[in-house]
Design a protein around this nucleic acid. Structure first.
Lengths: 197, 197
DNA sequence: CCGCTTTGCAAGCACGCACTTGCACGAACC
DNA sequence: GGTTCGTGCAAGTGCGTGCTTGCAAAGCGG
């Protein structure tokens, strides 16, 4: 329907993009229920009817909105660009990147978590983190084969991402700030000390 | 108004309690915006008008609802009941308790996080976790004075709670299950290895 | 130039929502 | 017995919301 080959009006993709961007912004601020189609249309600078003509329903719009950069390619490029001669330094780089990545997606993650905890059938399905965890576990496996680990790579990966997650997402709960590099370094240090043999 | 000394109708507190319980349940399932006063009243077995006569507004009702057991006393009793002769075993007990505690409050925590991330002025103010962290840090300080730690107790406490938090709250993100005792034991082991000197 | 598609615009529908109101009943207290 | 207070009940108000419709304008391809 969209990529029929002959693009009639130039702006059709652009319109979709504007609507999706506006939807994401409002969704992050207000959640699924708090996001209104009127507001999305207004923020996108588009008529509400146009929104429905494109996506059919609010549900379909939000589903389409969630299909956006999970960031796994970025993570892979960071992982493959690591020097590799200093494991601790590499881990710090990973920690920096993951933290930044999570910070950028914090709002969306939190909303998804809440709506998951609510147990509604409407499952957002946030695929990014588990892919990142798998890649990190694979990376750790290599290191483990070299004898650097005393625990399972999968557990270590989960553990590592979990701490960063808790700092990014749970900062309000323990009223702590977003971790700066020095704090991340300390975290990495404790982690590394905990998992290495 | 409520505790004026002479209780007129016996059920006034009971009515409030039923409304608050229903409100909590629906709030956890649907969030602030998804919770409707009609539904709360219905679930409480009370007329909607009665709800408004008691609380005045939906906002006031939800605020009142949030004023409930933060669980800090329970945590303190667990902490003080620890044998103390085996630090690792004590930590495991703490991990079990904290995990259970967080599981019980998971929905509320997630909703609060999401509404915090949304940046709405309406701040839920979840006080429990930071109190628990403070107590745990104090407990760690004692151990640190005994030379068991190589990192700051506050960081260690934050770290420890953070991992458990990530397992309880973020399970969907990494599609992992709620941690069983064996997993918690492993986590405690890694943590302890990471922080002790 | 003609048709096609995309969009804007204005109005509207049906419903759910927070919140109100007026009345009647019944249990307490004087 | 009279008063007061808490509650149920039924109806209603005003507004927001998801979603639709009919029509006109504007751009593109043939």
């Amino acid at each position: 329907m969209l990529a029929t080959g002959h693009r009639t009006h130039a702006g059709v993709e652009e319109t979709r993009g504007k609507i999706l961007a506006a939807a994401r912004e409002l969704f992050e601020r207000n959640g699924t229920r708090g996001t209104t189609t009127r507001e999305v249309a207004e923020k996108a600078g588009v008529n509400e009817a146009t929104l429905f003509r494109h996506f059919g329903s609010k549900r379909a719009l939000l589903d389409a909105m969630r299909e956006h950069a999970c960031g796994i390619e970025q993570f892979r490029s960071v992982l493959s660009a690591l020097p590799g001669d200093d494991f601790a330094a590499d881990l710090r780089q990973i920690a920096y990147h993951v933290t930044d990545h999570m910070l950028a997606k914090r709002a969306m993650m939190c909303v998804s978590l809440a709506e998951d905890a609510a147990g509604t059938d409407d499952v957002p399905e946030f695929r990014g983190p588990s892919q990142i965890k798998a890649d990190l576990a694979a990376y750790f496996t290599v290191k483990a084969d070299a004898g650097a680990f005393r625990v399972e790579p999968a557990l270590a990966a989960r553990f590592f991402l979990g701490i960063l997650f808790s700092y990014v997402v749970g900062r309000k709960l323990w009223n702590s700030a977003v971790p700066d590099r020095a704090t991340l370094d300390e975290i990495v240090d404790v982690f590394l000390n905990g998992v290495r043999s």
